[in-house]
Nucleic acid binder design. Structure first.
Lengths: 210, 210
DNA sequence: AAATATTTTAACCTTATAGTCAAGTTGCTA
DNA sequence: TAGCAACTTGACTATAAGGTTAAAATATTT
């Protein structure tokens, strides 16, 4: 009973500072990598003295943990669950739309996650082994059900999920390449819609749903 | 005239050592990031003393450059050019097959490249602005031609190329996630074929080519 | 075989950085 | 408003890592 009260009271300044630090750290970790991001550079970006950073987080490793947690939170909140009753077409449409939205609204979270996986998922092995595996298994079963029912073409559900993940995240992780290749400075409003429309169109057709 | 001779003579030991170093460095850069990979760790992995590494490469930055060059070489050699006369179906099939092959045969090159792009493409901006942009533009024009000819469904060719890139590279870059989610230890022979078949199937259908 | 070029390596130096500490300041509670 | 807790911050320390050097060993050429 005390704990909650205490947390909510001490939270004022703490919560604000921690949020600032996590945001700054996220950018630094992306740009410089874990080792390359210095506590000083995080402090500079957050506009706080270094010692203050280490007052809120015991050490650099803990900052990184907080950034990863923040990333998973963002992911979790952003991906609406699939409703089995709505059928494959609506399910895939919604899934694509939410993933594209996440990529355009929270590219940094996507990048941090991608780097962590590429580098061997040292900190996310457990997450993948438990939460993610279960999530994918459930969704795959749903797709398989629709396939068995003749509601969509027979494709490997796991690979379909990977396809949707990869194509949507590409616009966040490879943002710079996409923009450079297309000779554009930054994404605009309509890009998100156009990407959603394109992916929905081609994937639905690929699944025999058009 | 002397230069070539000199190079070929001095190359014996040098070429071997450099190759060993580049391979070791590639793994270290992936696992630890640029700053996190130490010259010592590269030396250990290559089985050479640190000072020897710095005899062949002036400094760490140069090692990284060599790794990136090696990556671009690999990419360049591995991607067969599209023959305009063969039509969209064969073109896409071949493109997917070669990209999947690259992902399964040279995952480390894919990972290094991905990390470099995610981190802002500091060393590859020029490559993307010139070579890559031109490459994509040419291929996109080809697809557009086929679309105008009614040989395939009207989809944005740029986005189609990004889709093929992202879905194929996913199996290299996110290898660990794919394996973990599917509760597998490592890829097997048939995985490459199955992925190729799946992607070819769904993408061709998505392009109205099935 | 002598002379020259290349390669190997230990020891050393310098700098950058994670983390500590202690002294001060601000904010909250009774 | 007094006292306690939370916060702020400059100065300091230890260590790890990039890079240098010089001398020895090995290859290569003539």
């Amino acid at each position: 009973m005390n704990e909650v009260k205490k947390e909510s009271k001490q939270g004022k300044i703490r919560a604000q500072s921690e949020a600032k630090i996590i945001e700054a750290a996220q950018e630094e970790f992306i740009l410089q990598g874990y080792k390359g991001a210095t506590v000083q550079s995080i402090a500079d970006r957050a506009g706080l003295p270094k010692a203050n950073i280490l007052y809120y987080f015991k050490n650099k490793e803990n900052i990184y943990h907080a950034v990863l947690e923040h990333t998973l939170d963002t992911w979790d909140k952003g991906i609406g669950d699939i409703d089995p009753d709505q059928g494959p077409k609506i399910a895939i449409e919604k899934f694509i739309a939410s993933k594209v939205r996440m990529s355009f609204q929270h590219p940094s979270s996507s990048k941090i996650y991608a780097m962590e996986i590429i580098q061997g998922a040292q900190h996310l092995k457990e997450f993948a082994r438990t939460y993610l595996r279960k999530w994918v298994r459930e969704k795959a079963a749903l797709f398989q059900h629709w396939i068995d029912n003749g509601e969509m073409v027979d494709v490997d559900p796991y690979k379909l999920i990977f396809l949707i993940w990869s194509t949507t995240q590409h616009y966040a992780d490879f943002e710079i390449q996409v923009l450079t290749v297309m000779n554009r400075a930054e994404y605009e409003e309509e890009d998100q819609e156009q990407v959603t429309a394109f992916l929905t169109d081609i994937i639905l057709r690929g699944c025999g749903l058009k």
